Simulated assay, not measured.
Amino acid sequence: MTLLAVERLKLFTTRSPWWSMLAALVVTIGFAALMAGTSDDTAPMDLAATQFGYNFGVVVVMVMAALAVTTEYRFSTIRATFLAVPNRTAALLAKTAVVATLGALIGAVAAFGSWGIATLITPEADLALDSPYAWRAVAGVALVYFFSAVIAVAVGTFIRHSAGAISALLIYSQLVESLVQLIPNVGDDIYKWLPFNVANNFVTGDPDPSARPVEFGPPPSTAELSPWWSLAYFAGFALVLLILSIVSANKRDA
Rank of each mutant, 00 (worst) to 15 (best):
L102I: 15
F56G: 11
G107Y: 01
S248Y: 14
P132E: 00
W18C: 00
P218M: 01
V27E: 14
G187T: 04
N197F: 00
A128E: 03
F31P: 04
L170M: 12
V247C: 13
A128F: 03
T28A: 15
V99M: 01
F12L: 08
M21G: 15
L169M: 13
A238N: 07
Y133T: 00
I166S: 09
A94K: 09
P218G: 03
V153N: 14
D206T: 12
E224N: 14
V69F: 06
T14P: 10
F56S: 14
S167A: 15
S76H: 14
V6K: 15
A152P: 06
M1L: 13
I171G: 03
P219N: 08
S221G: 08
D126V: 05
Y233I: 03
L175Y: 11
V6A: 15
I183L: 09
Y191W: 03
Y133P: 02
K251N: 08
G140L: 01
I190V: 11
A32H: 03
A110S: 09
A165C: 05
L22K: 12
S210M: 13
R160G: 05
T119H: 08
G217D: 06
R15E: 11
G103A: 12
F112E: 01
I117P: 07
A199P: 00
A48V: 12
A48K: 14
F31M: 13
P219H: 07
V63L: 08
A249W: 04
V180I: 11
S248H: 10
A91Q: 04
P207D: 01
Y191R: 00
S210E: 13
K10H: 09
P44F: 01
L239W: 07
E124I: 01
V6D: 15
S221V: 00
I183V: 12
P195A: 07
V144Y: 04
W229A: 07
L242R: 11
I117T: 11
L67G: 10
L22H: 11
L239F: 13
R136F: 12
V150Y: 02
E177P: 06
F31Q: 07
V176P: 11
R74P: 00
A118H: 03
L242P: 05
A97I: 06
G107W: 02
F196L: 11
I183R: 03
Y172K: 10
V186S: 00
F75C: 10
D41V: 11
W115N: 05
P195N: 03
